[in-house]
Amino acid sequence: MSKSHCYNSKTFLLFYLGLLSAFGPFVMDMYLPSLPSMTGYFHTSASAVQWGLTSCMAGLAIGQLVFGMLSDAYGRRRPLFVALCLFLLSTMGCLYAGTIGEFVVSRFVQGLAGAGGAVLSRSVAADRYSARELAAVLAVVGSINGVATVAAPVAGGLLDAVAGWQGIFWFLFTLGLLLVGATCRFRETLSPSCRKPWSFREVRAGFLSVLRNRSYVSNVMQYGLSMALLFTYISSAPFIMQHHFHLSPLTFSLFFGVNALAMVGATGLSARFAHMARALHVASRGQFIFGLSLCVALAAGCPFWVYELLVFVLLAAVGLGFTASNALAMDSERDRAGVASALLGAAGFAGGVVVTPLVGLGDILMTTGLLLVALSMSSWLLLRRATRFWAFPTAVGR
């Protein structure tokens, strides 16, 4: 191993990539329990405060594309430093915002910067590992990302009770400092000879090249649908558990954490499959079966234990699905890993942008059930078409 890579041991990279992967979910979701108190602080409505979530999600989606292209042109390390410094500045902007407008703008920049960590965690893994080892690394990173997505609101609720919404953003600032320190130790994984020149023509050629890869596009769509299923659960669970089943906030938080274990177990299990394509097939069928079952159960007025059991198993299938599709997509586009990772991450957040406002339309039980069926059926039908007509990978992870 060269001197430039002397610190890139697998243990360090797993720790570092896990932190980067968890960055986006914590930036987006951690302050959700503080929304009611923030309406009073800024003397505004709940809908105005929720624009902070929307702007952050938009920043995360756009930032995936920006930092993906930058990392292919300038390497992984320098864009990471830019993203983290921008994140620290925008977090201070959130903490000292005088109006809700200033807060919303700061949240957009914070999401833009937070996307750098998410997109580069996949790019670095693709630089260093291949085939089965890449699948194992992404399984670990994916499990951390899945836990962070579900656990961020729970951790935010605990911090809000102790230090208010400002305490949550001071925690995010501290997390940013920790990542700056880790990035100082991180060594570049993309050699100059492998970098793509930065120009409009090259950027356009990069995106077109990646989008012509049908296997990659298929797996990106699978990833987006899995993430849309996850966001459907996240946005509906507080209302279903607390309003419909009358759980207390503390009990709700506990079950929220328990359900995270399903995703952890499933993402870890994905590395045991001989082929990632096989794992994706199992996940897609599981999502459809248990999504349909949950829809029927909610329509029939099921008791809480039935709802919780079906959600737990459905989230296991979701965790397996986005881990397998993540590994397959990145393995099929190694030459342009930055652009590939950017589009992959943007697709995941785009799914969240679409389904989150739909959950609240009409009867939340029926809307949630129908969304779960529509998304899981789309995943299953897409995979059947990809297997039959496209050059779908069957040997990844061998």
Rank of each mutant, 00 (worst) to 15 (best):
V306T: 11
D331W: 05
S325D: 12
A299I: 11
A300E: 09
F290G: 03
G352M: 06
G351S: 06
F304M: 09
V282M: 02
L320R: 01
F288G: 08
L298T: 04
A317K: 11
A274M: 09
L294V: 10
A324M: 01
M276G: 06
A342R: 08
A277F: 07
Y307Q: 12
A329S: 04
G301V: 04
M330Y: 04
S332P: 11
M330H: 00
S284M: 13
L344F: 13
G345N: 06
G286D: 10
A337D: 13
R334W: 03
A317M: 14
M276T: 09
A350R: 07
G319N: 07
A300C: 13
E333L: 00
A316H: 05
A324Q: 00
A337S: 14
V339I: 15
G338E: 06
F304R: 03
A347I: 02
F349K: 04
M330P: 13
Q287E: 15
L310G: 09
D335G: 03
L280T: 11
L292H: 08
A271G: 08
G321H: 01
A327L: 02
V282I: 13
A299F: 04
L343Q: 10
F304Y: 09
C302M: 11
A297L: 10
L328E: 01
F288H: 08
A337E: 08
S293I: 08
L280V: 01
R334F: 08
A337L: 05
V306P: 01
F322K: 07
F288T: 04
F322A: 07
L310I: 05
A329M: 01
L320N: 01
D335F: 01
V311L: 04
G348L: 02
Q287N: 15
V282T: 12
V313R: 09
A316M: 05
F273K: 02
G348Q: 02
A346I: 00
L310Q: 08
L294I: 10
R272V: 08
G321V: 12
P303S: 13
A340T: 02
M330V: 00
G352Y: 06
M276E: 13
R336W: 02
F322P: 09
C295Y: 02
F304L: 14
G319E: 05
G351T: 01
L292K: 02
L294M: 14
G291T: 13
L328F: 09
